[in-house]
């Protein structure tokens, strides 16, 4: 590092930087920023604006800047039509439920495991840590197909009214969309890292006062772990909301399907693009709203996911 700087020094003496090229470069930077901004924002703007227009107008506006502007005959008709074509309300409820349960269980179960690994003496800890880290390198795509076969062999206790019955096969259920994604090696790792930064003197003091391990977890460690909880929640929520490959294979019944599978209702001829854009906007805007509201946490979680790999 030092040597590369040293070697750069002699040449720079010759070149003196005058202020005017720097200002030109500054303007150039802003032009690039704005151009990239247009490239990244306008397709989404186009999607949202088109969702408010009738099909004829969407195509009519394509050749002008009006494609990106909320002008002309605007209405929420497409949104209404989507609910007639697709059981959209059901899909939204399913996705909200599946994501929420996955996030809550994921935060709970992974933080408990991380707490035990960070705070307690447990026999076999080294083996477990190795196993957890080993799962980080396996992409879900390599497990998905054997997993479909496997979940079809698993038993489940079904509650019908007041009678319990044992069934086999998890295909076409809610649990098949939730339970495989609850325990997550990366979430455990993130919690573990965070817990290590909380001084252990705190829980030792609580031990002296006779607090149980679970109480230390609940009253001391978790209340101090807000940022880690936010990070894990976001990193669990996004794939849960966006999941497509998995529910495509394991869910057949309409009433159990999540939002992303709903796009299949539009794989047909003579589709109304206004409705497609309305459905797309509808399943995107909630996430965008969450992102705008918790921007800092989103960015932090993505940045922390960088250490994976």
């Amino acid at each position: 590092m030092a040597t590369t700087l040293e070697s750069a020094r002699p040449r720079t003496r010759v070149r003196s930087s005058s202020p005017s090229p720097r200002r030109v470069r500054g303007i150039g930077g802003w032009i690039v920023r704005i151009l990239l901004g247009v490239v990244f924002a306008f397709p989404l703007l186009f999607m949202f604006v088109s969702s408010l227009k009738p099909d004829q107008q969407i195509f009519g506006d394509l050749s002008s800047i009006a494609a990106f502007l909320p002008v002309g005959n605007l209405s929420l008709d497409n949104y209404g039509a989507v609910f007639d074509r697709v059981p959209a309300a059901r899909f939204l409820v399913n996705s909200i439920g599946i994501s929420a349960v996955t996030v809550v269980l994921g935060v709970l179960i992974n933080s408990l495991a991380a707490f035990a690994l960070s705070r307690m003496k447990v026999r076999g800890k080294g083996v477990i840590l190795t196993l957890i880290i080993a799962t980080l390198i396996v992409p879900f795509e390599t497990l998905a197909l054997p997993l479909v076969w496997w979940v079809n062999q698993l038993p489940w206790l079904d509650l019908n009214g007041f009678s319990l019955s044992l069934t086999t096969g998890w295909l076409d259920t809610y649990q098949v969309q939730i339970l495989p994604f609850v325990a997550n090696a990366f979430s455990i790792y993130l919690f573990h890292q965070y817990f290590e930064s909380i001084p252990k003197e705190l829980d030792e003091a609580a031990r002296v006062d006779g607090a149980s391990w679970f109480k230390i977890y609940r009253k001391i460690v978790m209340p101090l772990s807000g940022p880690a909880i936010a990070t894990v929640s976001i990193l669990t929520f996004l794939p849960a909301w966006n999941s497509y490959l998995w529910p495509l294979m394991v869910v057949q019944s309409e009433e159990l399907r999540p939002v992303m599978i709903g796009v299949q209702y539009f794989f047909q001829l003579n589709v109304s693009w206004g409705e497609v854009m309305a459905y797309s906007s509808m399943i995107t805007l909630p996430v965008v709203a969450l992102f705008i509201a918790f921007q800092r946490s989103f960015v932090n979680s993505i940045a922390s996911s960088g250490v994976k790999g």
Binding site: V122, I128, T135, V138, L154, P180, I188
Partner: peptide
């Protein structure tokens, strides 16, 4: 207590990562 806290995550990882990998 430690195993009680670890087991839900360990069981789920075994069921949904290790078993399918072996399968």
């Amino acid at each position: 207590a430690g195993w009680a806290m670890l087991s839900p995550a360990v069981i789920l990882l075994l069921l949904f990562v290790f078993v399918p990998a072996v399968l």
